[in-house]
C-alpha cells in the first residue's frame, strides 16, 4: 500500500514532465500538422541556457526565467527561419527539417558546451516528503514540478478560451483557410504556436534535468515519452496531452516499480504501440480523422 502510494505520486510528478513535452508537440501539431522531432533538442538547448545563467548569476530563478524566454525566442525563430519555407511543400519536407533541426541543435550544444554530463540544480529540496511517518515518494521539488506544469497548462487553457489571441490560435488550428479569409494573419499565429511550444519544452527541460543530467542528448528519451503521452491524448487536444502525460507517468511508475526500472523506455514504447493499435486517434482527439 505504501509502495502503491509512492509509485502513484511519483508517477504523477514525472508524468507532468511528459505532459509538458506533449503540450509542446500538440501546440505545433494543431497549428501546422507538423510533428516536431526537434522538440527534445529545443528543450535541451534552452536548459543549457538556464545552466549558463545559473553558473554566472548563481540564481536558479534567473536561469529558470531566462530559459522560458529563450524557449519562446527559439521557437519563434525556428518557425520563421526554418519551418516556414517548407510551408506548402510535401509533408515529408517538414519532417526532414525538424529531424535536421534536432541534429543541428544537439551538434551545436556539443560544440558549445562539450559532451560531458553536467548536474543541474533543483528548485527545491529533493528530500522525500512524509505524511506522518509514511513516505510519499515525492519531494518538494516534485510538487513544484507538477504545480509549475499544471499552472502553465491552466494559463494556456485560459488564454485559449478567453482571449482573442486564443481564439486566433484555435481557429487557425481547426480551420486555417477560414481564419485567413476572416483576416487572421496565419503566419504570426503559427509563429506564436512554435514560441509557446518552445516555452513548454524549456519548462520540461529545466524541470526534468534536475533529476537526470544535462548533455546534448539528454532529452531524447523524455521526448519519446512525451510523444507517447501526446499520442495517448490524441495529438490534437491540450487537455488530452496533460491527461496522457499523467496516465503514462503513473503506468510507467507502476511498471518500473513492480517489474523493475531498467526498462522504463521499453515500457513506454510498448504503451505507444498499444495505444496506436487500440485507438490510433488517441483517447481525446476531437476529430474523427486526422487532417494532414
Amino acid at each position: 500500500m505504501q509502495e502503491f502510494l509512492e509509485f502513484t505520486l511519483g508517477g504523477i510528478a514525472t508524468g507532468m514532465i511528459y505532459a509538458a513535452i506533449a503540450l509542446s508537440l500538440v501546440l505545433i501539431w494543431r497549428g501546422t500538422r507538423i510533428l516536431n522531432y526537434s522538440q527534445g533538442g529545443m528543450a535541451m538547448f534552452t536548459t543549457y541556457v538556464a545552466w549558463l545563467v545559473i553558473q554566472h548569476t548563481g540564481s536558479y530563478w534567473a536561469g529558470f526565467a531566462v530559459a522560458l524566454a529563450a524557449g519562446l525566442v527559439l521557437g519563434s525563430v525556428l518557425e520563421f527561419a526554418v519551418v516556414r519555407p517548407t510551408e506548402n511543400k510535401a509533408p515529408l519536407n517538414a519532417v526532414i527539417v525538424t529531424i535536421g533541426l534536432l541534429i543541428l541543435l544537439e551538434g551545436l550544444a556539443g560544440i558549445i558546451y562539450g559532451g560531458q554530463y553536467r548536474s543541474f540544480p533543483a528548485a527545491f529540496s529533493i528530500k522525500g516528503l512524509k505524511a506522518g511517518s509514511v513516505g510519499l515518494g515525492i519531494s518538494p521539488n516534485d510538487v513544484f514540478t507538477a504545480a509549475a506544469v499544471l499552472g502553465a497548462a491552466v494559463i494556456l487553457a485560459l488564454v485559449f478560451r478567453y482571449t482573442s489571441v486564443g481564439l486566433r490560435l484555435r481557429a487557425t488550428a481547426f480551420a486555417p483557410a477560414v481564419a485567413r479569409l476572416l483576416g487572421v494573419r496565419i503566419g504570426r499565429v503559427l509563429t506564436l504556436g512554435w514560441a509557446l511550444a518552445g516555452l513548454f519544452g524549456a519548462l520540461a527541460g529545466v524541470l526534468v534535468t534536475s533529476s537526470t543530467f544535462l548533455y546534448p542528448n539528454s532529452m531524447d528519451s523524455i521526448f519519446v515519452l512525451g510523444f507517447t503521452a501526446a499520442v495517448i491524448g490524441g495529438l490534437d487536444s491540450p487537455v488530452g496531452a496533460v491527461v496522457g502525460g499523467i496516465v503514462l507517468g503513473v503506468v510507467l511508475s507502476y511498471a518500473g516499480g513492480y517489474l523493475g526500472s531498467n526498462l522504463v523506455l521499453v515500457y513506454g514504447l510498448a504503451a505507444l504501440v498499444l495505444v496506436l493499435m487500440i485507438r490510433p486517434t488517441g483517447l481525446f482527439s476531437s476529430g474523427v480523422t486526422r487532417r494532414v
Binding site: S164, L167, A171, F174, A179, G183, V184
Partner: peptide
C-alpha cells in the same frame, strides 16, 4: 468553424 461556439465564430469575424 464547427468546433467553435456560435459566439466564437462571430467574434472571429470581428477580430
Amino acid at each position: 468553424v464547427t468546433e467553435l461556439t456560435i459566439e466564437e465564430n462571430l467574434r472571429l469575424g470581428g477580430l
